[in-house]
Computed example of a mutant assay.
Amino acid sequence: MRSTANHAPPQRTKRSLATVTPDSEKLYDYCVYDSDIATGYGVGALLLLAAAQAVVMLASKCFCCGRGLKPGGSRACALILFLFAWLTFLIAEACLMAGSIRNAYHTRYRGMFVGESVSCETVRKGVFAAGAAFTFFTAILSEFYYVSYSKSRDAAGGAPYGGSNIGMGTYS
């Protein structure tokens, strides 16, 4: 007869796991982590996000350099989007950096100095998820910023907003 019990396979986790291990002389405990792939992904995402932000800022001359923009709705929208894109960029970078640093932090000598039991903490899923969400927001806001910036720049045309030409008429 077959058993009717439902045996589910064990859940496999993608997060780093840690175990408390005593040193060879049994003076202190430390944490041994099984993998550290999340740290590499976090640092990679951090560097790629910084590179993408640099490309957008170089293409638009960081909103403050280059040709003047025509006053109006597009310029105001570009300014607001510029500020929000930088805000979400800084939050995304902070989340990715905090997650990467926290994931890479191995409490090797913590038990020796503190004298308490060692806590092998791992990064919460939400830290990298927040970094990913704010990276997405940064991408969307940066794209809309560049569209508004380009629209205002193209509408400015030549002088007086678009160039430094000084009009010299012929006088008789």
Rank of each mutant, 00 (worst) to 15 (best):
A139I: 15
H7T: 11
V43C: 01
Y28I: 07
C77G: 12
A98K: 08
G162V: 05
T107W: 02
M97C: 11
C95M: 10
T13D: 14
L81H: 05
L58F: 02
S117A: 14
A156K: 10
T138Q: 13
S142T: 04
R124T: 13
A94S: 11
Y41F: 15
D154F: 12
V123W: 00
C65A: 13
R2L: 13
L27K: 12
A130P: 00
S16K: 07
L47T: 13
S117P: 06
K61F: 08
N165M: 06
T39I: 08
I101G: 05
Y149C: 05
F89L: 14
P71D: 08
S24P: 04
Y161F: 15
G66A: 14
G99D: 04
S142H: 01
R67V: 08
K70V: 03
A132C: 02
L87T: 12
A159H: 12
A139Y: 07
A139K: 05
V32F: 03
M97W: 10
R75K: 15
Y161D: 12
C64D: 06
E93K: 09
A130K: 00
A155V: 06
T107P: 13
A76W: 01
A8K: 15
Y33F: 08
C64A: 05
G163S: 15
A8H: 04
Y145R: 03
C77I: 05
V147E: 00
L81V: 04
F137H: 07
A130V: 00
T21F: 01
A38K: 07
A76R: 15
Y30I: 06
Y33Q: 02
V43W: 00
S172V: 13
L58Y: 02
T19R: 11
S35Q: 15
N6F: 11
L47H: 12
C62H: 14
G73K: 11
V123I: 12
W86T: 06
Y149S: 04
C31I: 08
G126H: 02
P160R: 07
G72W: 01
I140R: 06
L49H: 02
